[in-house]
């Protein structure tokens, strides 16, 4: 697609006084809950923050297909295979809408992909963990899509129009994924002893990484205040994490599964579940590339890209030839 944002970058930059006025007017629109659209003036740092956030989100959808793809050919029934295929297809679709939303801000999909493949861009740390048994597919749907929904529901009201609209559609599908994941866990938790063990093992491995999906705790979160003012963010990381824990703990108990946290306790007064300290060292290591599957995930994306290069070249070459033929035809 053609990106309107690119044209805008060429227009003359406002003077410092104009910039202040524009920023005030911009903030006033946001405070009034108006949506910002691609052609509207916006501060450069607002644009940059959004491009970073939306492209990270898009990358997460794409990389997130890999751990699930790992079980696609081994799904234990045809119904489960069909559901999982539909899910990964949805995730690819989410990646597409999100890249398109980011493109409206003037960054091309190619640029974003290059950043992913070079290792410069980040994606959700959760996908750097391995899927080791079938219950992991249930745990991913239940916990990972569940955490994604917590993060994304507020984004349906994000100040940037194209992002908020993409999120409305994405959230509907994510909640479907969450229910399907929980259903897998239910069947496993109520199945044979071996299945029950798989379910508990999956929960043990995915619980803490799911809590990490909400990002650093509020004290250490660099962008929170500005993003809240811009209504790119509506709740802090810790608020969302607490919400997730409060919703998820009873779901685990309902299945008779144990949350792998000895400090977990219900605060009778507030009704919130208190939980133990996240291993922030692990979080940092996974984010900086040292998780169990970082190298594999990036390697898989790179090799798909490299092996597909002749196909993409063919597509362009064919389109060029078609154009030449039709202009030769017109000239004749």
């Amino acid at each position: 697609m053609y990106t309107q944002g690119l044209d805008q970058a060429d227009t003359a930059a406002p003077s410092p006084e104009e910039e202040v006025q524009l920023r005030d007017a911009f903030q006033a629109r946001i405070d009034a809950e108006e949506k910002i659209e691609p052609r509207d003036w916006m501060p450069e740092d607002y644009r940059r923050t959004l491009v970073r956030q939306i492209s990270q989100h898009a990358h997460s959808e794409i990389v997130g297909m890999l751990p699930e793809g790992n079980w696609l050919t081994r799904a234990p029934s045809l119904k489960r295979k069909a559901i999982l295929l539909a899910k990964v297809q949805d995730e690819a679709g989410h990646g597409l809408y999100l890249y398109s939303a980011a493109e409206t801000l003037g960054t091309s999909r190619q640029e974003m992909l290059d950043q992913l493949l070079s290792g410069k861009a980040k994606y959700s740390s959760i996908f750097n963990y391995p899927t080791l048994n079938w219950a992991d597919i249930g745990a991913i749907g239940w916990l990972v899509d569940g955490a994604a929904i917590m993060n994304q529901i507020p984004l349906c009201r994000c100040s940037y129009g194209p992002y908020s609209r993409a999120m409305v559609r994405v959230c509907k599908e994510e909640s479907f994924h969450q229910r399907q994941g929980y259903e897998i866990m239910t069947v496993m938790a109520r199945g044979t002893d071996e299945q029950r063990q798989m379910a508990q093992d999956a929960l043990n491995r995915w619980w803490w990484p799911s809590l990490m999906m909400f990002g650093p705790s509020d004290g250490d979160s660099a962008h929170t205040a500005q993003s809240m003012a811009w209504k790119i963010k509506r709740f802090t990381n810790d608020e969302l994490r607490q919400k997730f824990v409060d919703v998820t703990v009873p779901q685990a108990h309902f299945l008779g599964l144990e949350i792998p946290d000895p400090d977990l306790a219900l605060d009778e007064e507030t009704g919130h579940w208190c939980f133990g300290e996240i291993d922030w060292q692990e979080f940092k290591q996974v984010l900086s590339g040292n998780g169990p599957c970082n190298a594999e995930r990036l390697g898989a994306r790179r090799s798909a890209h490299e092996e597909g290069s002749w196909v993409r070249q063919a597509l362009l070459a064919h389109a060029d030839k078609q154009r030449e033929r039709s202009s030769a035809h017109e000239a004749a």
Partner: peptide, 27 residues
Amino acid sequence: SEWVGKAPMLEEEMALANMALDMVGQA
């Protein structure tokens, strides 16, 4: 379905998964 995660572009990622899903559905 062996193609998932390996397609040459995102649009084909979707098309291949979609065709796989159709075939499994027919089966």
